[in-house]
């Protein structure tokens, strides 16, 4: 399993594989690129599917190290991080891929932006 194949998830979350394929990426910069290209409908669908499972997903991740080596654990973390960053776009920004009335996010440089989970 590599960072480009994020669909293998723990059994309890196997049904989320299509969302993992769409959203889960190992680096913040890659997740940003996915988010910048997303539509309001996609943010809503991601939110509607993930929020009811978030408690369970985080309970599972509580037993995983911060940087899991196990591919399924790592993919579960990538999915949680993708949702962690995508949720405000649905909950706060009206489905916009940009933060409303903001500076161009592409001009922000994250030191850790290319560090893989």
């Amino acid at each position: 399993m590599t960072s480009t194949d994020p669909t293998l998830l723990p059994a309890a979350f196997a049904d989320l594989a299509p969302l993992a394929a769409r959203w889960a990426r190992p680096t913040e910069n890659e997740r940003n690129a996915v988010r910048h290209a997303a539509t309001a409908g996609e943010f809503a669908a991601f939110h509607d599917a993930l929020l009811p499972r978030l408690d369970a997903l985080l309970t599972y991740l509580r037993d995983c190290p911060p940087r899991p080596e196990d591919p399924a654990q790592r993919n579960a973390l990538m999915l949680a991080c993708a949702y962690a960053e995508a949720a405000p776009h649905h909950e706060l920004y009206g489905g916009s891929s940009e933060v409303p009335f903001s500076f161009d996010a592409r001009r922000f440089v994250a030191d850790h932006g290319d560090e893989a989970l």
Binding site: L58, L61, R62, C64, P66, R67, Q73, A76, A80
Partner: peptide, 8 residues
Amino acid sequence: ANAAEYAA
């Protein structure tokens, strides 16, 4: 300390 805290 764990992956859940990191995601949060």
